[in-house]
């Protein structure tokens, strides 16, 4: 999958910036620590937007394009922030054979976003995940910490609507 770059404006705080700068200060001078710095940065910001990658590029003296290349190579790096409500649809084996793909398609159709993306209003993000250990309830999805099981696609609009109006 090609990762979509989020158009949501960057809202970093001074605390987050100080946190990233501290990580970079520890690692600058050893370019092989790039992945580590990127993981820490994602831990701080939740994703790796342009502003964050540029900070890493300058701090580590590594070309920005190289960092972007790494961030688009590995599935673990996100280019979009998590929404207020993050929906994880399980595509593990049990959920998959019980029709999780149709659930996932429905979520994407309603929100108009793909896996790893966030809606323009910042309310919803979604991703496909692997087994969350609730195979007995397959197919399963989670919205933040709430678990929904035994899903059929027709239930999805109602569930999402609940959060939209919450």
């Amino acid at each position: 999958m090609l990762k979509k770059i989020s158009k949501l404006p960057f809202k970093g705080t001074p605390e987050q910036e100080a946190g990233l700068k501290a990580v970079i200060a520890e690692c600058a001078g050893n370019k092989s620590l790039l992945m580590h710095v990127m993981q820490q940065a994602q831990g701080i910001y939740g994703y790796l937007p342009f502003e964050v990658q540029a900070m890493i590029a300058d701090g580590m003296d590594i070309p920005l394009e190289h960092i972007y290349g790494v961030s688009t190579f590995y599935a673990q790096f996100a280019l979009a922030p998590k929404g207020k409500y993050n929906i994880s649809v399980c595509l593990g084996t049990a959920c998959y054979v019980k029709g999780a793909q149709a659930v996932l398609d429905k979520v994407q159709a309603i929100l108009g976003i793909g896996s790893g993306e966030c809606t323009d209003d910042g309310q919803f993000s979604m991703e496909a995940c692997r087994c969350i250990g609730a195979c007995g309830l397959a197919p399963v999805m989670m919205i933040n910490d709430d678990v929904y099981g035994n899903l059929v696609p027709d239930q999805i609009p109602g569930i999402i609507e609940k959060y939209r109006t919450a």
Binding site: M1, L2, K3, P63, E65, H66, Y68, G69, T72, F73
Partner: peptide, 12 residues
């Protein structure tokens, strides 16, 4: 300059 590089992975 290194302003170009390989983006994404696999078929993409």
């Amino acid at each position: 300059c290194a302003v170009i590089g390989a983006n994404a992975r696999g078929f993409n």
